[in-house]
Simulated assay, not measured.
Amino acid sequence: MVWLRRSAVVAAAGGGLAAGYLGLVTGALPVDLGVGRRTRPLGPRSVDIAASREVVFDVVARPYLGRTPRAMREKVNVLERGSDLVLAEHYTPVAGGRLTAVTVETVRFTRPERVDFRLVRGPVPQVTESFVLSEHEAGTRLLYEGQMGTDLWRLGQWWGAAVATRWEDTVAASLASVKAEAERRAAGSSR
């Protein structure tokens, strides 16, 4: 009988660890201890876009400040909308699409040169990011950079490295999407 009780304790602890891990990965269990905080850069990454800065800004801002297009509703849900600041949920498939990470971020708009993101809730306690739009000979250069902070010294540093890889991959896909849509709009308006 002792082995049965020990097995039950081990199973409960393992289940608790698994639930904690799932909560952390999906952002449902945010952990912000403020102990052993380490930061790491995100980016920088830039993309040149053959469209005006205003067009690029509008492409980035539209899902937040305007009506969220149907195709974006699986990725973004605006919880609160102001004239230059929104609170939005972002949905990112993880674990091969079996899970969805949900982050909540503020998004601030400074037309036409800047969009700033600040994490409110997610798999790490701190993220700040920016899209800076500058005029470039071929149109617009969009520069992405940010910073991610994690707690618990080396353990948090390891977790941050794992999260940052997926985070930056998601940003790269967003930048490619912004480029394609802005260039499509610019080509359509020049006809």
Rank of each mutant, 00 (worst) to 15 (best):
R73D: 10
R73T: 15
E74I: 13
V78D: 12
E80F: 05
L85W: 00
L85T: 10
L87I: 09
A88Y: 01
E89K: 11
H90D: 04
Y91R: 08
T92L: 08
T92C: 03
P93Q: 15
P93F: 15
V94I: 15
V94F: 07
G96F: 04
A101G: 04
A101H: 14
V102A: 00
V102M: 01
T103Q: 02
V104I: 09
T106C: 04
T106G: 03
T106A: 11
R108P: 00
T110N: 04
R111A: 14
P112H: 12
P112R: 08
R114P: 01
D116I: 13
L119G: 01
L119C: 03
V120R: 00
V120C: 01
R121P: 00
P123G: 15
P125E: 03
Q126L: 05
E129M: 05
E129I: 06
S130D: 09
F131G: 10
V132E: 15
L133Q: 02
S134M: 10
H136Y: 06
A138D: 11
G139W: 14
G139D: 08
G139K: 10
R141Q: 05
Q147H: 04
M148C: 06
M148G: 08
G149Y: 02
T150C: 06
T150E: 07
L152M: 12
W153H: 12
R154A: 14
R154W: 09
Q157T: 14
A161C: 03
A162L: 07
E168R: 03
E168D: 11
D169F: 02
T170V: 09
V171C: 03
V171T: 15
A172E: 14
A173M: 07
S174A: 13
L175G: 07
A176K: 12
A176M: 11
S177R: 11
V178Y: 02
A180T: 10
E181W: 04
E181G: 12
A182M: 06
E183Y: 08
R184H: 09
S189H: 06
